[in-house]
Structure formats: C-alpha cells, structure tokens
C-alpha cells in the first residue's frame, strides 16, 4: 500500500506487540499525524474497593491511559499521533471509533494463539475484522504458534 492513508487506527493493548503494530502502521502514512492510537478500557468496577474507598474514577483512569499512550507513542516514533481512550468492549469500540473517524485502515496485532489458548483467550482482532468499516491489516506475532 502506498504512503497515502490519511487516517490509520492502531488499537493499543500495551502488550509487547503494540510497538510493532505502530511500526507497521507508520509504513502506511507519510506522517505520524495521520495515526490514531486507541486504547479501550473495561467498564469501571463499581463494587471494587478502589472505586468505593479509594479515588478511582473513569476520569482518572482516562488520564493515566492518556499518559501511558503518550509515552508509548513517543517511544515508537509517533509522538504526533492522535491519542484516544474509549470504555467498553474492545472490538466494538475500535470499530465504532474507526467509523466515526472515517478511517482508511486499522492496523492490529494478533496474539496468534492456537488450540486451547485461543479458545480461552479469544481475539480482539477477530472482532475488529467482523465489525470494521474499513480495511484491516493484522500484524502477526513474530513468535506466533
């Protein structure tokens, strides 16, 4: 694919695969300003001691994730990327975000599990493939089984 995409979305789960996905996405754009890094957080556990007794709120969680995304982006030569945080089911939220941004491409890493591990761990990439409004580029793990 030529360096023409104007909006490439990279879902980030902060695993070891995330920097590799950012590197792969950079190949599709001429500038890192066209990259969107998104992390999807699960809903807040309203009965967790952290929420009830501590000071855990969605705003604080968002802020922490923004900071972590910023650090990751800076470390992956994508410091001008747009950073986004959503709450909900990862696959669906990523697809929704891509639709809202009229994205050209989603670049997502796959853990590449097989057999029992695949059954138990599931795959966000699979969900994104099913719901995405645009092309999806799946980055295979280097040591995929």
């Amino acid at each position: 694919m030529p360096l023409s995409a104007s909006c490439v979305i990279v879902p980030i789960d902060f695993s070891e695969e995330s920097p590799r996905a950012i590197a792969a996405a950079l190949q599709f754009v001429d500038s890192d300003t066209h990259l969107h890094l998104i992390h999807v957080m699960p809903p807040l556990e309203t009965m967790s001691p952290g929420f009830i007794m501590g000071n855990l709120t969605d705003d604080i969680r968002r802020q922490r994730v923004q900071e972590a995304l910023g650090e990751l982006a800076a470390a992956s030569n994508a410091s001008d990327a747009t950073l986004a945080v959503a709450i909900g089911t990862p696959g669906l939220e990523i697809a929704d975000y891509a639709r809202a941004q009229a994205a050209d491409l989603i670049v997502i890493p796959s853990h590449g599990y097989q057999g029992v591990k695949r059954l138990f761990l599931g795959s966000v990439a699979e969900r994104v493939l099913r719901h995405a409004p645009c092309n999806v580029y799946v980055v295979r793990r280097s040591d995929a089984e």
Binding site: M41, E45, S48, L56, R61, V65
Partner: peptide
C-alpha cells in the same frame, strides 16, 4: 495466599488491578 495474589497480579495502565 495474599502475598501470592500480589506477586501474580496484573496492574493495568489505567491503574486497575
């Protein structure tokens, strides 16, 4: 059991555990 729970816990980037 509580020491083990701390050793093998996962701390997420949003601060939840």
């Amino acid at each position: 059991e509580c020491t083990l729970a701390q050793v093998y816990r996962k701390v997420h980037p949003d601060g939840t555990v």
